[in-house]
Simulated assay, not measured.
Amino acid sequence: MVMVTIAEQELAARLRKINLDLLPVLHELLRTRSVTSTARSFNMTQPAVSRALRQLRGAFDDQLLVSPGRNARLTDRATALAEPLARTLGELDLLLKPAGPFDPATETVHLVINTADYVTQLLAPILTGICAREAPHVVLEFTWAITRTAEDLAAVDFVIGPRAWGQTLGKRVGSLPLWRDEMVCLAAASNRAVPSRLTPAQFRASRYVAFRRSLRMTPELQNQLQPTSPLEVAPVCTVPNFLVLGAIVEKSDCIALLPRRVARELARSGTLRIVEIAWPRRHLFIDAYWSLATNSRRGHAWFRQLLARAVAQLP
């Protein structure tokens, strides 16, 4: 736990004694040495500026402006304040000025995307390629952790996953539809015992490996992540990664269910082939999600546009 220093405590106590809205008025009083001119500059009445001067004198425990009028002069304290006050007001102006649009060509930002390994395989090469050309200081971190609540979602920048799961995160969540997918079966190209289309009964009678994100995952959550999970009641092996399924299938007589887009990528090697599955609830929609509490983070709106561009380039 980081403790507040004594100096910070003393500064907070001093700030409570002064109305910071009066600092621009003080700056103008020190510049013009005139209540009348200051009132004119801020479109205030002279009595209002006089009241402000009284408050400032109390806050600084100094007269600041002696004999206000034509022959007014600054006290030593006021003279010493003039330069640091002007500098502080300039820095406050920069600090409080609304931020301009995110500039990916020059700004540095670190974005954390929580998603499955196969989504990373599909999107990361395209996203990093675009960033290399257009956003050289943007760092993308792909990770995979179970997200169950809006609070979990706020801990990262974006989560990409099935819509059936995303709809359970609550109302304070933004979403962006990415693509539609469907579950298919993957078999070794050399495994001719597996037909080109499987019925649910044929699948259950086969040796198969299955995706399981966690042993503690409820059947309901598993079904949200993978709509064919009711078929996978007795796998011979479970793994927490989709891509590992392909490696197991390639070197065994097992089959596996996984999204078509990743199955298509794995089948490019020629050692695996796609087998259709006659299962009515095999479709899934993949969306990006983010907490509305993170909407103002630098680069978020830009990255959502980048995601849409990357998805448009998917085969």
Rank of each mutant, 00 (worst) to 15 (best):
V2H: 14
V2G: 11
I6L: 12
E8C: 03
A12G: 06
A13K: 08
K17T: 13
I18H: 04
I18K: 02
L20Q: 10
D21W: 10
L23T: 07
V25W: 01
H27Q: 15
L29M: 10
R31L: 10
T32L: 13
V35G: 06
Q46M: 06
V49T: 03
A52P: 11
Q55A: 13
L56S: 05
G58C: 04
G58D: 08
Q63C: 00
P68Y: 03
P68Q: 06
P68F: 03
T79K: 07
L96S: 10
F102R: 01
T108F: 11
H110R: 02
A116I: 02
L122C: 03
L122H: 04
I126K: 02
I126L: 12
A135R: 05
L140S: 08
L140C: 06
W144T: 13
R148A: 11
A150V: 15
A155H: 08
V156H: 07
D157P: 00
I160S: 01
I160F: 00
G161W: 07
R163E: 02
A164K: 00
T168L: 00
G174T: 00
C185T: 09
S190A: 13
L198T: 09
L198Q: 07
L198S: 08
Q202R: 14
R204I: 10
A210H: 03
F211N: 04
R216F: 06
P227M: 07
T228C: 15
S229Q: 11
E232K: 07
E232D: 12
P240M: 12
N241I: 08
L243K: 12
L243Y: 03
A247S: 08
I248V: 15
E250M: 09
D253H: 12
D253A: 15
A256M: 11
A263P: 05
R264I: 07
A278E: 15
W279S: 12
F285C: 14
D287I: 12
S296E: 11
R298T: 06
A312K: 11
